[in-house]
Amino acid sequence: MLLDPAFFAAMVPAVILMGLSKGGFSGLGLLSLPLMAQVVSPITAAAIMLPVLMSQDVVTVWSYRRDFDRRTLATLLPGAVIGIVAGYLLAARVADGAVVLAIGLISVVFALRNLVSGGKAELPPTLPNYPQGTFWGALAGFTSMIAHAGGPPYQIYTMPLRLAPSVFVGTGALFFAMINVIKVVPYIALGQFTTQNLTASLALLPVAIVSTLAGVWLVRKVPVKRFYRIIYSLLLLVGLKLTYDGLNGLHWLG
């Protein structure tokens, strides 16, 4: 695997995209697994990526250690734990395509609603809401466990809060760092942390760290309004891709 040029040709761009996503440009990371799946199976790709993600979590959590919203985390985490457990228990019974399709359609509608307004009729920031936070947190945990697509539910709940970009990213960094730690147990149970997979993860760590630091640097340079417009645009693109993947997963498209 490690001596295969095709492996690195797919894995290095995938890790760079994930690093930029972890650094603050949420959504790019969802493009990583399809790239990796060109050279390894999806479950192997996810297993290789998990240690890489956790190394990137260390960078982002440290970089934004003073920039996070405790109340937002408190509204999301209980639901996320429930979602992860449900995803693990129901993984064999739930159609991945249905989950991905639903998240894709929700993401497209949400992103379009905000992009079409162009900021002309921008709504005032919402306040953290425990019922909504529990729902979207559970959906983020569930889709992260089932389809590695926890980002859109997190964004849909947190973007209307209109947090400062650094706080938005820092809160997400802590949230997904905790989710990834919890996900270690199912991956161990699946026997995916093999010597070969862990060696591949280790080889990709330098790229992971540098790309994450680049994402952190870019977030701090982009103005607030432009930052949110970029995030909404990325969410729209990711939503369209998830919708397409979901339709394929349900075998609706030949």
Results as ranks from 00 to 15, higher is better:
3 L>V: 14
5 P>M: 07
11 M>F: 15
12 V>I: 15
16 I>A: 05
20 L>T: 04
22 K>D: 05
24 G>S: 08
25 F>G: 08
26 S>F: 03
26 S>N: 14
27 G>D: 02
29 G>A: 06
35 L>H: 02
36 M>A: 12
41 S>P: 03
43 I>R: 10
51 P>W: 06
52 V>D: 04
54 M>T: 06
55 S>C: 15
55 S>K: 01
56 Q>E: 09
59 V>W: 05
60 T>G: 08
60 T>H: 01
61 V>L: 07
62 W>R: 04
62 W>P: 01
62 W>I: 09
65 R>M: 07
66 R>I: 04
67 D>G: 06
68 F>W: 15
69 D>M: 04
69 D>S: 06
69 D>I: 02
72 T>A: 15
73 L>I: 09
75 T>Q: 05
76 L>E: 10
76 L>C: 11
81 V>A: 15
81 V>E: 01
83 G>V: 00
83 G>Q: 01
85 V>I: 15
85 V>N: 09
88 Y>L: 13
90 L>D: 09
90 L>M: 08
93 R>L: 12
94 V>K: 03
97 G>P: 09
99 V>A: 06
101 L>P: 04
102 A>V: 13
108 V>L: 12
108 V>S: 10
110 F>V: 00
110 F>W: 07
112 L>G: 02
115 L>T: 04
116 V>I: 15
120 K>M: 02
120 K>D: 13
121 A>S: 13
122 E>R: 08
122 E>Q: 04
125 P>Q: 09
126 T>N: 10
128 P>E: 00
130 Y>Q: 03
130 Y>G: 12
132 Q>K: 13
133 G>T: 01
133 G>F: 01
134 T>L: 15
134 T>S: 13
137 G>E: 05
143 T>I: 11
143 T>D: 05
147 A>P: 04
147 A>M: 07
148 H>T: 10
148 H>Q: 12
149 A>P: 05
150 G>T: 10
152 P>S: 05
155 Q>D: 11
155 Q>W: 10
156 I>Y: 10
158 T>P: 07
160 P>E: 00
163 L>N: 02
164 A>Y: 04
167 V>T: 14
167 V>S: 02
168 F>T: 00
169 V>G: 11
169 V>D: 06
172 G>K: 00
172 G>A: 03
172 G>W: 02
173 A>E: 01
174 L>H: 03
175 F>N: 08
175 F>W: 06
176 F>G: 04
178 M>I: 15
181 V>G: 01
183 K>T: 09
183 K>D: 11
184 V>S: 01
188 I>E: 10
190 L>E: 06
191 G>P: 11
202 L>E: 02
202 L>G: 03
202 L>M: 14
203 A>Y: 11
203 A>H: 00
206 P>Y: 11
209 I>W: 04
209 I>C: 00
210 V>P: 13
211 S>P: 01
211 S>F: 08
211 S>A: 14
213 L>F: 13
214 A>E: 07
218 L>Y: 13
218 L>E: 00
218 L>A: 14
218 L>T: 09
219 V>R: 08
223 P>I: 08
223 P>V: 10
225 K>R: 14
227 F>G: 12
230 I>N: 03
231 I>R: 06
235 L>M: 14
241 K>W: 14
244 Y>C: 01
244 Y>I: 13
249 G>C: 12
250 L>A: 11
251 H>D: 12
252 W>I: 10
253 L>T: 06
254 G>L: 13
